[in-house]
Simulated assay, not measured.
Amino acid sequence: MGFAEEHQKWLDYHKKQRSGERLDRLERGHGHGEKMFAERVWWPIFGHLDDLHPEYEVSDWRGRPYFVDLVWKPGQVKFAIEIKGYGPHEQNTDRTRYRQELNRETYLQIAGYRVVSVPYDDLESAPELTVSLIKALFIPCLVQNADDEMSRYTRMEKQIMQLAVRSKGYIRPVDLVNRLGVDLRTIRKYMAFLCEKGKFKPVLTQGSSRICRYEYIHSVLDNELW
């Protein structure tokens, strides 16, 4: 499933969890800039939208609701991601709004969020710069949990994932039989386990229910783990 389908599925899921102002804000607030960030930066890094929350509601220092463009909460860490366009406050025509925005960012950090400001113009003209900066910022937080993550997998499962990464994300059962020296029944068993754990999804032969190969679900930690 590509980005467009996953993005719509992700949005639909979050809409179902909301009502009232929170739902209205999501429908109004998740616009072109936020979608462009998800497609041009987030998707190339992670390959999924797990733990990413659009138009996430927090309270500011006055106790008033405030909606962050995107919040990433993979565990103990929390990142508040704001897409910054070149708006009126940069020209000092709306100084009150600009001052409140800066105070909110400071308060978010007090509340335990790390604030990431992303220039809208870079998303249009140089998304690769934002990709490299986001990866450099996020990977240390993920690597802290890498050992715990990999402890979920058996030695055979790790070998299968390594082979898939080296095969550009797709691998056939027959390839695993030949490279690992085990029978097809064993391979199918392990692939079923890995699909349940969200690391692979089966690709069916066109017009058939037969699995012809498996697609590896990309992780930002692939290069660090193997």
Rank of each mutant, 00 (worst) to 15 (best):
G2C: 00
F3P: 00
A4D: 04
H7S: 08
Q8N: 14
W10F: 05
L11T: 09
L11D: 04
Q17W: 03
Q17C: 08
R18N: 07
G20T: 09
E27W: 02
E27V: 01
H32I: 15
E39G: 01
R40L: 03
R40H: 06
P44L: 13
G47T: 03
D51G: 01
L52M: 11
H53E: 14
H53Q: 13
E55H: 08
E57N: 02
S59L: 15
E82A: 09
E82V: 11
I83K: 06
G85V: 15
G85R: 06
Y86W: 08
P88S: 11
R95L: 15
Y98D: 03
E105H: 14
L108G: 04
L108D: 03
G112W: 06
V116E: 08
V116N: 09
V116R: 04
S117A: 13
E124P: 01
A126R: 13
V131M: 14
I134L: 15
I134F: 13
K135L: 15
K135N: 13
F138W: 10
Q144H: 08
Q144T: 11
N145Y: 10
R155H: 10
E157S: 10
E157W: 05
Q159W: 12
M161Q: 04
L163V: 00
A164V: 00
I171Q: 00
R172I: 02
V174M: 12
V177Y: 10
V182P: 05
V182R: 10
R185Q: 03
R185G: 00
I187V: 08
C195M: 10
G198A: 11
F200D: 08
L204H: 04
L204T: 00
I211S: 02
S219G: 12
S219D: 13
N223A: 14
N223Q: 13
